[in-house]
């Protein structure tokens, strides 16, 4: 099933995000071997050059490393993965806070609201 993409941003960025999410969520474990660019592109339903670009960017970020002959692997550096997790979480939180703000909640209100909600669910 081809992946969904938003219209307003480059596809390679969106591919990077999706792969990062898969790393953090544990769909890929540290040190896992990635499928070939061609297979990954086919799975996502995108151009192999675009997938190549996304992977090259991930390589630059150190989340993926290439071994000359055997292909690409997810980094086995747990620290990197953890910091990625934190970074993605931060992004989600700031997005969430922004939306709450548009509903009239200050960050403080939001925290209080969240705590209340959690109490109730318990």
């Amino acid at each position: 099933m081809p992946w969904d993409f938003q219209n307003d941003r480059p596809i390679y960025l969106q591919l990077m995000e999706k792969i990062m999410l898969q790393i953090v969520s544990g769909r890929y474990s540290a040190g896992d071997k990635l499928a070939s660019v061609r297979d990954m592109a086919a799975e996502a339903g995108v151009n192999p050059n675009t997938m190549q670009k996304a992977l090259a960017e991930l390589e630059r970020n150190g989340l993926v490393f290439a071994q000359r002959t055997s292909g690409r692997y997810i980094t086995d550096n747990m620290e990197k993965i953890n910091s990625l997790r934190v970074q993605l979480a931060k992004e989600q939180v700031s997005k969430f806070l922004k939306q709450m703000e548009s509903l009239g909640y200050t960050p403080k209100d939001t925290v209080a609201f969240l705590e209340n909600n959690l109490e109730e669910e318990r």
């Binding site: 219209n7 307003d8 941003r9 480059p10 390679y12 151009n47 670009k53």
Partner: peptide, 15 residues
């Protein structure tokens, strides 16, 4: 390139 258009124009090629 498709990504160039998306990056510079903030919209899809289709749009």
């Amino acid at each position: 390139s498709v990504d160039e258009i998306r990056e510079q124009q903030g919209k899809s090629v289709d749009e």
